[in-house]
């Protein structure tokens, strides 16, 4: 097989760009660490999103140039960021009141596993010796109105991440509404994984083969 033929599906940037098209203008959005952070680069022209970072900033702006940042102005990934005009700082209990109180419109997270009923596992493999660390993920999925996952369709070992039931320790029960992968956009419905869109050039059977539960085709 040529190298060209092995490259199939969206890049990380294309995944982030695809997701960014679906965020309503004016939304208050919390982005997780990793691929979710790329979403900011692809917000459609004319749209303004207000980014929340749970360590106490609403109106987060881009990372400053190397050497121009402030160690006391960081995001949840502990990376230096900036504050946009109209930003606000607040303490942790207020920040999580925004989250738990249903004031944040959308949260975008990475995942280890997503189940067909919307269960999410994204904080621990449960392996002995691993240091457990949960951060704000459990509060975010419990309180934010809409929670999207953005992730590679399969693990590095080619195991499906979209599964019938999560085998890793859960982050939340039935909390995910939509998944964006390198292969497809998939909604979580009462009937299970509902395909919404295939990456151009990707066949339904190819995605089904790499999904650990039934994938419902576009009607």
């Amino acid at each position: 097989m040529s190298e060209q033929a092995q490259i199939i599906g969206w890049t990380r940037e294309q995944m982030a760009s695809r997701l960014a098209q679906d965020i309503p203008n004016g939304s208050y959005v919390n982005l997780g660490i990793g691929i979710p952070e790329l979403v900011t680069r692809f917000v459609p022209d004319g749209h303004t999103l207000i980014y929340h970072t749970e360590n106490g900033l609403l109106g987060m702006g881009p990372s400053p140039k190397e050497g121009e940042g402030d160690p006391e102005l960081i995001n949840a990934g502990k990376r230096q960021v900036s504050a946009n005009p109209g930003a606000a700082y607040f303490h942790h209990a207020d920040s999580f009141s925004m989250i738990r109180g249903g004031h944040i419109d959308l949260c975008v997270l990475g995942a280890m596993q997503v189940a067909q009923n919307g269960d999410l596992a994204n904080w621990s493999t449960g392996k002995p010796g691993a240091i457990p660390a949960v951060g704000g993920a459990m509060d975010l999925v419990a309180g934010v109105k809409s929670v999207f996952v953005i992730t590679q369709h399969c693990t590095k070992e080619n195991e499906p991440k979209l599964v019938e039931r999560c085998t890793f320790p859960l982050t939340g029960l039935g909390v995910i509404t939509r998944v964006y992968t390198d292969l497809a956009v998939i909604d979580i419905t009462d009937a299970g994984f509902q395909l919404i869109e295939l990456c151009p050039g990707v066949e339904f059977a190819y995605v089904q083969e790499r999904t650990g539960a039934e994938l419902l085709p576009i009607a």
Binding site: H91, H92, A93, S95, P132, V134, G136, D139
Partner: peptide, 15 residues
């Protein structure tokens, strides 16, 4: 010993 607490729960417990 580690008592692992979700971040928002930790904040609200302190508040």
């Amino acid at each position: 010993e580690l008592e692992l607490v979700p971040q928002g729960t930790l904040a609200e417990r302190i508040r």
